[in-house]
Design a protein around this nucleic acid. Structure first.
Length: 938
RNA sequence: GCCUUGGUGGCGGAAUUGGUAGACGCGCUGGAUUCAAAAUCCAGUUCUUUCGGGAGUGUGGGUUCGAUUCCCACCCAAGGUACCA
């Protein structure tokens, strides 16, 4: 019998599908374990070898946990709304639903052929109405709640209305968007319904607000940051401007502190937690109010260093601030206006690239220092950002480098308020070793005490307040796209109204054209017929009928992160038509025990989903406020791109080893399928590849064209994609699975390289030969000897700890060592091979199932208990210790495994070489490192 | 600049609380088998050497009987982030 992986893998994949081997029940007495992969976006290119890395790791762990007696939930689905399908629709007119469906089919085929143990009965697709019904439902829940600072959680809007009716909005401590004018209970009752709705909208957790967006007039649409390349649109190359538009926003800022604190409770990678902390960007400091000379308004600044307030020598405002126009003195008007206009025209990109150029203008106005009453000149400068803090800073040039540079540039005085600090060439920014000087009551104090003292005084005098500020901005939720979840809102008298829950899902309408309407409305505006009303079983035309009247619907759709912010709950109860997840299912599964995915989602998906989780927790729909206990980031698999080198302005390509470093050549990527293992290019294929290469000339070296190589992200556009299908074809899924694990630590990014794959393939063949030699079944019932048992138990121990610590690469090595040793012991004992086959099954499920079956078992290996190692086989008799004595007080043991310290002591004393040395001496202390070296202290 | 992670043979990578550095695999070299090849098996493989040794885990220091591991300073690479007051 040969190891015929093709037949084996096909047979077992069919068996698993027919027997629904991996279908998991919500009713089980076993302990639960929920292990999840980040679901893929089904792109047209299909899966490449990078995709399965995380899936293989999670599959190994899922299979391991099943062996360990857990009821394992290991589902998979598709994040199937997204831009590429829509782009494709714009180009070809093909409906995104159709391309998405085709792509999903392809993905499924590829996933199946790798033998993953997903429970496909729970598959979810974010673009399916059954699914996005609940995404819309969560949106409505957010719409119906506000954030109460006192309760420190979300509460229903109805609650807020009661408060307003009782005491207006003066005493409520809640979060709202911009400043809402204060009103009394009397006033609230006197407002008409429209005004009341307007006010409430400012408190809702999802709300409409003016937001700056990237507007591309050429395409008539809003673009995401990554759709803009060098200031123009990626598609079409049209210019992009900032434009203010009414957009739905999510009040994630309300959850800043809890998102920060929650990080301490979860076992996620430190680097990722750190990224989220930085993104949330908490700074503790104070607001300080500065009066303006001859003006009613005051300037409010945020500072993390209120202790340096006596060092203020000027103030800087963001040019965008409305206040700038009001306070600017007549003689400075012209200069200020010019500067403000210049700033508006500069893109964010230019402003960022231009850090070294210091610019600003004096407004002519002066502020009054709140403690000394000194006159402080007010400047504007574009290093101050309008949307962080209050858009104004108190400049302390001696303690802040940017203030320092600004002061030097414009010759503004610098006052040193730090004892013994030199500010000759740069600002003194050290906080820890600071003693304040020339600062009235703060003089002589250190940073910590000065902070306490100054905040107290500012608060007493009413000219400041201790404050915490966060960098995290509310998330814009509107997209002017077709292929996304419709927002379940209609408009009545211009005010947004929630759809009733019975009207969900609000289905995505059919459109003829996926571009914005001629009037500039989002693509959904092209719909002639919309909204299938489930209840009335009728089609509703273009507008929704709210009982009898007709109202316009919201035309924006939701962003890509909407569906992925809660999908993990849907897997628990994917068929539920009554709720996003049933109570019982949720009670059983609770949360994700292990979540695998890339770190590129650190400040996107992984932050938004924690926000929604906390909201759902507040309103009592889920029972934990962090949804994933443990997270592992799998590293990216990189591709090795191939390059040809073109002489500028010609069609001549020069071989890699022909040009000197002085030559200027343009590197052009070429498909890696045209290149062999020695980097030689198949020139004929290139000529046929794309029209631009039809007339290409090649300068060869020794008759061949050699390409250059570079390691970068694997991507279709870089022509460096390696398709797993080929490898499955050549070596089988089990080899591919083990090889991807063998490549290196799971968290690490690594280039794809098939050079070593034969080693893993050889291993599986060797493993097969433990069962079959020359086509004869050689497994026997002979009792294994001690050596073989030791090999087995060492392997069990190592494999178990390796899987538990996700060291899959070293685990594969362990298998290889084990098989080599059994081979040289000529051990084909069933007693050894049965447990070994179970050990191997998470890594190579197909061959394990096959051999398990041939060992005489009738059931699938999936739920067989994992072997437990027996310590007895690891401890040797003390007489067998080979010991070397190095002449001093150190002895070296060279035994592979030794656990019993007393046995080691005995062995050392009994050893003939050490006997003499130890004669008459009684060791006081033994320092024993099992396996290694012994120190004896006399 | 800041944050995070990492730097070990020709290559991917091992090395537990500090205890024989280079497991395992690839590649390479030699041998067995074969008419021959593939496959398989066995042996060798950090560098250097006057064959006694000597050097060696990015660089330079330190702690220790002993450092890839701990401490300090620096260099390099990858990823993230950025006028955040």
């Amino acid at each position: 019998m040969e190891y015929n992986f093709k037949d084996i893998e096909n047979n077992w994949q069919r068996y698993w599908a027919e027997h629904e081997t991996f279908k998991v029940s919500n009713l089980s007495k076993k302990p639960k374990f929920y292990i999840l992969d980040m679901f893929p976006y089904p792109s047209g290119a299909g899966l490449h070898v990078g995709h399965p890395l995380g899936y293989i790791a999670s599959d190994i762990y899922a299979r391991f946990k099943r062996h360990k007696g857990y009821n394992v939930l290991h589902p998979q689905g598709y994040d199937s709304f997204g831009l590429p399908a829509e782009q494709y629709a714009i180009q070809t007119g093909q409906h995104p639903a159709k391309t998405t469906k085709e792509n999903i089919l392809r993905y499924r085929t590829q996933l199946d052929q790798m033998g993953f143990s997903f429970d496909w009965s729970r598959e979810v697709r974010t673009s399916s109405p059954d699914f996005y019904k609940w995404t819309q439902w969560i949106f409505l829940m957010l719409f119906d709640h506000y954030y109460c600072n006192k309760a420190n959680k979300a509460l229903p809007i109805s609650n807020l209305i009661k408060c307003f009716e009782k005491e207006g909005n003066i005493t409520v401590n809640v979060i709202s968007d911009s400043k809402v004018d204060s009103f009394s209970a009397m006033e609230w009752k006197s407002f008409d319904s429209l005004k009341q709705q307007q006010i409430l909208l400012a408190y809702r957790l999802t709300y409409l607000a003016e937001a700056e967006v990237n507007w591309c007039a050429g395409l008539g649409t809003v673009l995401a940051n990554d759709e803009i390349i060098n200031g123009v649109s990626e598609r079409g190359g049209f210019p992009v401007n900032k434009k203010k538009m009414k957009q739905w926003s999510m009040r994630i800022g309300a959850y800043s502190e809890r998102l920060l604190l929650g990080l301490d409770k979860i076992d996620w990678p430190d680097s990722l937690k750190e990224m989220q902390r930085n993104w949330i960007g908490k700074s503790i400091g104070a607001k300080v109010f500065f009066k303006i000379e001859g003006h009613d308004a005051q300037i409010e600044v945020f500072t993390t260093r209120p202790d340096t307030v006596f060092g203020v020598t000027f103030m800087t405002l963001a040019p965008e601030l409305d206040l700038v126009g009001e306070i600017t003195k007549l003689e400075q008007k012209k200069a200020v206006n010019t500067y403000v206009l210049e700033t508006q025209q500069r893109t964010q990109r230019e402003r960022m690239a231009d850090i070294k150029n210091i610019s600003g203008v004096f407004t002519g106005a002066y502020a009054l220092h709140p403690l000394t009453n000194d006159k402080i000149p007010i400047w504007i400068g574009d290093y101050v950002l309008a949307d962080y803090g209050t858009g104004a800073v108190m400049a302390v040039p001696c303690g802040d480098q940017r203030d320092y540079d600004f002061a030097k540039h414009f010759n503004i005085p610098i006052k040193n308020i730090f004892k013994g600090a030199s500010i000759e060439s740069e600002a003194y920014t050290d906080k820890i070793n600071t003693v304040i000087d020339h600062s009235d009551f703060l003089t002589g104090l250190q940073y910590k005490d000065a902070m306490k003292s100054i905040i107290k005084v500012l608060e007493e005098k009413g000219c400041g307040q201790g404050t915490v500020n966060y960098r995290l901005r509310d998330a814009i939720f509107s997209r002017q796209r077709y292929w996304g979840e419709p927002i379940p809102i209609y408009y009545k008298d211009g005010m947004p109204q929630p759809l009733s829950l019975e009207d969900l899902p609000l289905n995505l309408p059919e459109v003829e054209n996926y571009l914005p309407t001629p009037e500039g409305a989002p693509p959904l505006g092209n719909a002639v017929i919309w909204a299938w009303n489930e209840k009335e079983r009728s089609v509703v035309s273009n507008n929704l009928i709210d009982h009898k009247k007709v109202f316009p619907l919201e035309l924006n759709t939701m962003p890509g992160w909407a569906g992925s912010s809660w999908y993990f709950y849907r897997y628990m109860d994917a068929q539920n038509r009554e709720a996003f997840v049933g109570k019982e299912a949720m009670e059983y599964w609770q949360d994700i025990d292990l979540y695998l995915g890339g770190s590129e989602h650190a400040t996107g998906h992984l932050l938004y989903s924690r926000f929604w989780q906390k909201f759902l927790f507040d309103i009592g729909y889920v029972n934990v406020d962090e949804y994933a206990k443990k997270l592992i980031n799998q590293g990216m698999i990189l591709g090795t791109s191939a390059y040809m080198y073109r002489k500028p302005g010609t069609q001549t390509y020069v071989s890699r080893d022909l040009f000197k470093s002085s030559d200027v050549l343009e590197p052009i990527r070429v498909d890696i399928n045209f290149v062999n293992a020695s980097d030689e290019l198949d020139v004929a294929k290139v000529i046929q590849w794309q029209p631009q290469f039809a007339k290409a000339q090649f300068e060869l070296c020794n008759g061949v064209y050699k390409v250059g190589r570079e390691v970068e992200k694997m991507s279709k556009s870089k022509y460096n994609v390696v398709n797993p299908d080929k490898i499955c074809e050549q070596y089988g899924a089990d080899t591919l699975r083990m090889y991807e694990m063998f490549l290196g630590p799971i968290e690490q990014a690594k280039p794809w390289n098939t050079a070593g794959i034969s080693g893993v393939f050889n291993f599986l063949n060797k493993y097969w030969r433990l069962f079959y030699k020359n086509e004869v079944y050689i497994v026997n019932d002979i009792k294994p000897d001690k050596k073989a048992l030791k090999v087995l138990h060492e392997t069990i121990k190592k494999v178990t700890t390796d899987i538990e610590s996700f060291s899959f690469n070293t685990c594969v090595s362990t298998f290889m060592i084990c098989v080599n040793e059994l081979n040289s012991l000529e051990c084909h004992s069933k007693e050894i091979l049965s447990p070994l086959t179970i050990l191997l099954s998470p890594f190579a499920p197909h061959i394990s199932e096959e051999l398990w079956c041939r060992l005489g078992n009738t059931s699938s290996i999936t739920n067989v208990p994992f072997p437990i190692f027996n310590k007895a086989f690891l401890i040797e008799d003390s007489k067998n210790y080979p010991i070397s004595f190095n002449g001093k007080m150190r002895f070296t043991l060279s035994l592979s495994l030794s656990l019993n310290k007393d046995l080691i002591k005995k062995a050392v004393i009994q050893d003939s070489r050490t006997e003499e040395y130890l004669k008459g001496k009684t060791p006081k202390k033994w320092i024993i490192v099992p396996n290694k070296i012994i120190n004896i202290v006399f």
